[in-house]
Nucleic acid binder design. Structure first.
Lengths: 214, 214
DNA sequence: GAACTTTAGAGAATATTTTCACAAAAAAAG
DNA sequence: CTTTTTTTGTGAAAATATTCTCTAAAGTTC
């Protein structure tokens, strides 16, 4: 079951959130691809195609059972699994992520936070106490953690990444704006906050130019 | 000069950061698409194609002049312009963004931060004092701001978005995990932290399945 | 200065992702 | 019970994005 487009996975998460809201409000028992798509800013065809990669979840002439579809998405996306995660970097962004409310429902559990700054080690962040980077390897091996978040300054990111991989980490979500050099078997995703914003300013400039030329 | 792929813009930011580092270290006067690409995890062909959307910046048989290419990217991406930005939401993520060091070099300046929580209004965040949401419209109009960041809880996002648009905002970067319903002429980009992480766990599961089936 | 090496730029070919269009199933209407 | 409406699932078509391939220019070697 591969060949699923990258963007499809991200949209499934968005569908899931909306369905969860519907279930909570008991608003609706059934929803069409048109309504679901419209609610989350996606075309109906896109919704159906996204789901079709994983099976048949709807009923022709009717739509999708909200509660069942939600459960199916949980299954597909692995929300019923527990994903222990370690986070390195107890700066502003690291602390924000520990407290981010959206992770837990998806099985994403930050179980430890590390920093090399003595002023931060020992501090409480969310429900966790910041540990020294020296403990990274021990914790990862003890708990069998495969997923890590890097939220350290740019200069430290590569070193931290190597340490994590050595300890057994298989996938890294890197918030530091720098490309990591790691073995091919390690999955790395980049969250580049500045580049997202720049895309916006770029498009805004484009729109201005177009408007001026009319 | 449209028809530029979305991912190209994001990669240009990444090239820029690397070139900036080179210039600072005075490491190199000239760089080939192969070396630049290799350094940031992109193919040489991709680097050349990305740049080719905007003109000719290199020299055959030689490569790109690092300092000139950096300047060209600044021009293309609008880093020499000033982009005043307002941020709504002085929670953990909002505070982290105000203090994020990567924005200023790209001309991105958060000039005001708002919240509706009386406990937060008046607090200092970075160099700014948190203002009441009631002042949003006045500040946006006074300063002619076109760009806004929404970092409020899900339930408040739509209301805040409408307020921003009414005040004249043309583009929104939305960190709240909810789809906004806004007029088509407003640009909206979503930064969905959970969905990025879920993509990672999903790919990790896929790899496990594949490994097991071998 | 001729032969060789390096490397950008660009068009063609691939690959990926999205949209379209329609058959078939379910429900509703008459 | 037949017709009409609704809506899924899917293969084909279109749009988007990436990689390949080759030409030509610049530099280097002999």
């Amino acid at each position: 079951m591969d060949g699923v487009p990258q963007p499809t996975i991200e949209r499934l998460v968005i569908y899931y959130r909306y369905l969860k809201k519907l279930v909570a409000h008991d608003d609706d028992k059934v929803i069409s691809s048109l309504d679901l798509g419209h609610s989350v800013g996606v075309s109906a065809a896109q919704v159906r195609k996204d789901l079709s990669y994983f099976g048949e979840f709807g009923c022709k002439g009717v739509g999708y059972n909200v509660s069942n579809l939600k459960k199916s998405l949980e299954q597909i996306l692995g929300f019923n699994q527990n994903w222990p995660i370690v986070l390195v970097g107890a700066g502003n962004i690291g602390r924000a992520l520990v407290n981010y409310p959206g992770f837990k429902v998806m099985g994403l559990n930050i179980i430890a936070i590390f920093d090399c700054d003595l002023d931060k080690i020992g501090n409480r962040v969310g429900g966790l106490i910041v540990k020294s980077n020296k403990e990274i390897e021990r914790v990862i091996k003890d708990k069998g953690v495969e997923l890590a978040i890097i939220a350290v300054p740019v200069d430290e990111a590569q070193g931290v990444a190597e340490k994590l991989v050595k300890a057994g980490i298989k996938a890294i979500w890197n918030i530091a704006p720098v490309t990591l050099k790691l073995p091919d078997n390690v999955l790395v995703y980049y969250e580049d906050l500045a580049s997202s914003l720049v895309t916006l300013t770029y498009r805004l400039s484009q729109k201005r130019l177009k408007a001026r030329s009319n």
